[in-house]
Amino acid sequence: MSEQFSGTKEVSEKLAFNLEDLNIYLEKKDINIGNILNYEQFKGGQSNPTYLLTSENNKYVLRRKPPGKLLKSAHAVDREYKVLTSLQNTEVPTPKTIHLCEDESVIGTIFYIMEFCDGNIFWDPFASEIDKGRRSLVFDQLNQGISLLHIQDIKTLELEDFGKTGNYIERQVSRWTKQYFDSETEKIDSMHKLIEWLPKRIPKQKYVSIVHGDYRLDNVVFDNNDNNIAILDWELSTIGDPLADFGYHCLLWHIGKIDNDVAKGLGIPNEDEYLNKYLSRTKMQLDSDWEFYIIFSLFKVAGICQGILGRVRDGTAASEFALQMGKRAIEYANLGWEKAKNIS
């Protein structure tokens, strides 16, 4: 899997752009990163096309909206740029931003440029390519990264307008319900049942923070010693409920069926240990709603997968991996409904 998604490849014809136009624009805007000599496309990721730029001085990353028909509010690279820029002077580990271009005439869609963080991305959810001792350190860094994000003060960062502060899950249920129906290729009965069940069970929101929206192992790059990380892919970030964001992050233990014995064998915390470490770091409290957050997160990831399948249908995502991910919508919706129907 690592070879399939790590590194770069030749830019696909559909996602190519004119390098001369980019260089003329950067010079005109006095963006001092040097003349871009060549560019390649990163293999990983199915949402916003991402490129490695090699200039005469250094390497950088360009991230853009994909061309073609898009769902409303999707692929919001301008929002990614805003939150990344706001977090630059905090302890939250993120790449440094350089420039946002909203002029679609330059390369065909809006884009931003940020620093290139060299290191390792573990595409396997359990980081199976490394040993147990190293894996334990990786999961601790992963826990610390999301904990640091969730304790940031949105007022200090001037991000009060980055999203609404209340009713996060209600809004998320509405959003992913709409995306599901916009992208539906066949009826998933369990998804329809979750759409009816979820709004009746939403707990009161206790905390407000920046939420990443898709925090998982393969959206984090680790330095070669696993001591420092950089969190990537902020497309779904907003203001919301940090416990819901952390619940989504913890789907690994449910989808991967990681019980205590499996966790011990892998050298990672079990779910309770991982959750308690997060609660200790953030000073948050959790009552009896953890199972709801997991069910909601399964619904959300099913909606994401269905959105990918919808893009395959519409011709804006054509890889075999995208098709496989889309088909997982049924699996995740079924698992969510199995858990939901057992709650009285």
Rank of each mutant, 00 (worst) to 15 (best):
P242N: 13
L19N: 15
Y207V: 07
P203K: 09
F296G: 00
I202R: 08
A127D: 11
S73P: 01
E186I: 08
K69R: 12
Q41T: 04
D289V: 00
S73Y: 11
R171N: 13
F162V: 08
H99I: 12
E331S: 07
Q172M: 11
F246I: 14
M284T: 00
F122T: 10
I195T: 11
F116W: 13
V211C: 07
S297D: 03
P95N: 05
N167K: 13
L22W: 02
S86V: 06
R175C: 06
F139C: 02
D21K: 13
K277V: 01
Y180F: 15
P66R: 01
H254R: 12
W234I: 12
S344K: 13
P93Q: 01
S280A: 05
Q306Y: 00
Y112I: 03
E273L: 04
K204G: 02
Y274M: 03
A322E: 09
N228E: 15
S319T: 15
Y39W: 03
R311W: 04
E271C: 06
M1N: 00
Y215G: 09
Y51R: 05
A76W: 02
L275R: 10
G133I: 12
D161L: 09
E338N: 12
I36G: 03
D118E: 15
R134P: 00
L232G: 11
R134V: 13
K178S: 12
D314M: 06
R79G: 01
G303M: 03
S55I: 10
E160M: 12
L137I: 15
S174Y: 06
S237W: 06
F246T: 10
N48K: 07
D78G: 08
D241I: 08
K187N: 08
E160K: 13
L198V: 08
E320L: 12
T156G: 03
A244P: 05
D314F: 02
R135A: 01
N224I: 10
D287V: 05
T97I: 07
W234Y: 13
L194V: 05
K28E: 13
G303S: 04
F5V: 00
T94H: 02
G265T: 07
E91H: 11
Y207P: 09
N224V: 11
D214K: 02
V61M: 05
Q88Y: 03
G34Y: 07
A263L: 06
G166A: 14
L100H: 10
E184D: 00
G145R: 03
S12F: 00
L194Q: 06
K200M: 10
K277W: 00
F111W: 01
N58G: 04
L252N: 11
W253S: 13
E3V: 01
K257C: 04
L100C: 10
W253M: 11
Q324W: 00
L100N: 10
N334D: 15
L243S: 09
L142Y: 15
E3R: 01
R135Y: 03
E102V: 12
F5R: 10
G247Y: 11
M114Q: 14
K277H: 02
L70M: 15
L70R: 15
S280C: 00
T8A: 00
S209D: 08
W337C: 03
